[in-house]
């Protein structure tokens, strides 16, 4: 127990990258659209299983990833158009509805895939370890780190440098006014919801390759995502990134140094932070 080794820091950062991918989708839906989507974890798990099936059937990790994102976006479409639009802005109803969707999805996945643990096969290129003069680190985990950074940059550009991003921000600021200026804001919000869902699906495939997939993986990732978004501040992309790094590193520190207190090491500081900054690190009041 002599502080963290480079290996452990990298483990923390790569876990943080996965958390960011999942939580960035969550912050689009929960942070920007203000929809309390507790089914986000179930979407992650569904994405993982679909990605596993598609990747093992076709032998292509890329096809697995695209299938997972597409399938989960489709589930998102059913949830948004078929269910959520009937409960409006009522948060309690959103919670109960999406919790119900979670049970439903999880049971369907249990019927289809059983209780066994699955690992999404990683492409040949990303197998094995990189060797820096004697220091070995799995290539796949470094790929996850790079992907997390890429997702951050792409989402930042989308939200801040495109017309669509400006429409999303305007809609979040004042949906009534942007609609009265000729924008079909419902459609913009639907797209945002589907994008958030697809990111959960992407997370499922990426995480399913190194954390493995099993029936309660959805609840664990949902709790971590909630912690990331709450620490970072709802709706802030930068907040989600900082929150993901905080949770990823705290998780590693907890596992390495205080294994019996691993969860406390994450949620203790979170509770403390919320006592002083109820809106999270980068949260804005609305």
């Amino acid at each position: 127990m002599n502080g963290l080794s480079l290996l452990q820091i990298l483990n923390g950062l790569t876990f943080a990258a996965l958390l960011f991918i999942v939580a960035s989708g969550f912050t689009l839906i929960f942070g920007l659209l203000r929809i309390v989507n507790l089914a986000h974890g179930a979407l992650y798990l569904a994405g993982g299983y679909v990605g596993y099936s598609a990747a093992t059937t076709t032998g292509s990790f890329l096809i697995g990833t695209m299938a997972a994102m597409g399938a989960v976006a489709l589930i998102g479409l059913v949830i948004e158009r078929g269910l959520l639009r009937f409960v409006g802005d009522n948060e309690m109803r959103q919670v109960l509805l999406t919790l119900g969707v979670t049970f439903l999805l999880n049971d369907m996945l249990l019927v289809l895939y059983g209780g066994d643990t699955f690992t999404v096969p990683v492409p040949e290129l990303l197998r094995g370890a990189l060797n820096w003069s004697g220091f070995f680190y799995p290539k796949y985990r470094l790929f996850v780190l790079g992907l997390g950074i890429a997702v951050f940059i792409l989402l930042w550009l989308l939200l801040n440098r495109t017309r669509l991003g400006a429409l999303i921000r305007a809609g979040v600021d004042d949906a009534e006014t942007i609609a009265a200026l000729g924008v079909n804001i419902r459609r913009i919000f639907l797209f945002t919801f589907l994008l958030g869902a697809a990111l959960a699906g992407l997370g499922g495939v990426i995480g399913g390759a190194f954390l493995t997939l099993y029936p309660s993986a959805d609840a664990e990732i949902l709790v971590f995502s909630l912690a990331v978004v709450i620490i970072g501040g709802r709706g802030s992309l930068l907040g989600a990134a900082v929150g993901a790094i905080a949770v990823g590193m705290l998780n590693t520190i907890g596992q390495v140094m205080f294994p019996e207190l691993a969860y406390f090491v994450i949620f203790g500081p979170m509770a403390l932070l919320l006592a002083f900054r109820p809106l999270g690190l980068f949260g804005r009041s609305v």
């Binding site: 017309r163 400006a166 921000r169 305007a170 600021d173 609609a179 009265a180 000729g182 079909n184």
Partner: peptide, 29 residues
């Protein structure tokens, strides 16, 4: 949004600008 698209402009009471958009973005969005 369909009323607006027919060519009816709207300046709401209290302006109702978008706090997260720049002046330029208000005009290009």
């Amino acid at each position: 949004f369909e009323v607006a698209r027919k060519g009816i402009g709207y300046v709401p009471q209290g302006r109702r600008l978008f706090p997260s958009l720049t002046v330029t973005e208000h005009l290009t969005v």
